[in-house]
Amino acid sequence: MPALADTQSMPLNMTQGVTAVSQQVYDLHMTIFYICVAIGVVVFGVMFWAIIHHRKSKGAVAASFHESTKVEIVWTLIPFVILILMAIPATKTLLAMEDTSKPDMTVQVTGSQWKWHYRYFDEEVEFYSLLATTSAQIANERDKRDNYLLEVDRPLVLPVGKKVRFLITSQDVIHSWWVPDFAVKKDANPGFINEAWTRIDEPGIYRGQCAELCGKDHGFMPIVVIAKSQTDYDQWLQATRTAQREAREEEQRLLDMQMGMDELMALGEKVYTTRCAMCHQANGQGLPGAFPALAGQGVSVDPAARLEHISVVVHGQAGTAMQAFGPQLSLKELAAVITYERNAWGNNTGDAVQAAEIQAVMNGEEL
């Protein structure tokens, strides 16, 4: 039983998947595997037969021949035929994998260090998907769940039975969007768009991860796809569209409001922990030579650099690993995390950044 349990938790063969293409890939893999097994049996069978029946102790004398035209033709034709037998199903499978024509819907997938951004074409829905496992859970070596490091805060939701085209790109370095159950694995290259597609046959939760070494948190960039029936998907889409519209309206109301320091600090700590601590560290000390410290130095403590601090968080910093968080966070979250950085770890500037200031910097206005 233990051996069986281990095999089930760590399969020894390819994932068969839940799409027609993934099944084709699996069938192709097994076809090539059986051909290789047959070649191995024949080659090693002939070799061991020759060793046993033509050994020196039986008085066997090695034959002396060379430049045999027949032998040359035979050992050229046999591999050629084998390769043709492999190439036919392989070509059919590759053509099926690359056929992104006539999709029912399109989703843009953008990788960045270290998260995924999904945008549904023509649906006014887009969001970032981040690792849901907290830093404290990662540091704790006990009680790791079955899907440890394969859980996200916002999964990609897709309908079953629909052809979904993915347009895959990157914001910074090379990533790779890989979901084994779909037989989809495409590099996300900055400045380029790669295409892939899937049609999911069964509702369920399917997991993957970035398959291209993309930086220090490459291992914390999972992918979760939830496949729903068309009815459930339509309900989710409508609810998400409504929630995002209400969030935009709430942001407009925030422009005329003054949030209190306690509210800003509480939300700012939460945002900092999930979005910033991986680089600048939970204590704000950063990583020397890689990520600058925020505690007690730099723009986060300079009263004259308040606008610069906002601009760096909103627009990012060219030539560095500092991303533009303006498109990723709400005005409230941006105001909160900047306020937190200016007042945590003993910085104590007393600055309470408001949503209106963030909006002004986004629009390039002078305050």
Rank of each mutant, 00 (worst) to 15 (best):
I51C: 12
E202C: 14
S22R: 01
I35V: 15
V157N: 05
V184F: 07
A136T: 00
V125A: 03
E308M: 03
R275W: 11
Y206K: 12
V353E: 00
N347V: 06
Q317W: 08
R207Q: 10
M30H: 12
G17C: 07
P292K: 12
R165P: 01
M30K: 13
A335Q: 01
L254C: 08
R154T: 06
R306E: 13
A336S: 02
R142C: 06
V46T: 08
K163E: 06
I168S: 01
N194H: 14
T19F: 05
T169E: 04
S129Q: 03
R119T: 02
L331R: 03
E365H: 04
P203A: 10
A132F: 05
G268V: 03
Y233D: 00
D143N: 15
Q285I: 10
M47K: 04
Y128E: 14
Y128I: 09
A356K: 08
E269H: 11
V160I: 14
E251A: 05
A227F: 02
K92F: 09
Q230K: 12
C214T: 10
H53C: 09
L255E: 00
R154Q: 10
A183W: 02
Q238D: 10
Q238E: 14
M14I: 06
V152W: 03
A3H: 14
R55A: 03
I174V: 15
F121T: 10
P203D: 10
D27K: 11
A50T: 04
L237Y: 04
V21D: 00
Y340G: 01
T349L: 09
R119S: 14
L331C: 02
V353W: 01
Q317P: 03
E249C: 10
K186A: 11
E195T: 13
E151K: 13
N147V: 04
Q281D: 02
I84F: 05
K102N: 11
G59M: 06
L255P: 00
A63F: 01
A5K: 11
A352T: 03
D153A: 08
I73D: 00
A293V: 04
Q238M: 11
P288A: 13
V184Y: 07
L156I: 14
L158P: 02
Y233I: 10
A183R: 04
D146Q: 09
I73C: 05
A355I: 05
P288R: 13
K228M: 15
N363T: 01
V361K: 02
L131S: 07
N189Q: 15
G219F: 13
A295C: 09
T169A: 06
I88Q: 01
F291I: 05
T320S: 07
D27F: 15
I200T: 13
T19I: 11
A90W: 02
D262F: 11
G45W: 08
C279P: 08
Q323G: 01
L85P: 04
E341F: 00
V225I: 13
Q108H: 06
G289P: 06
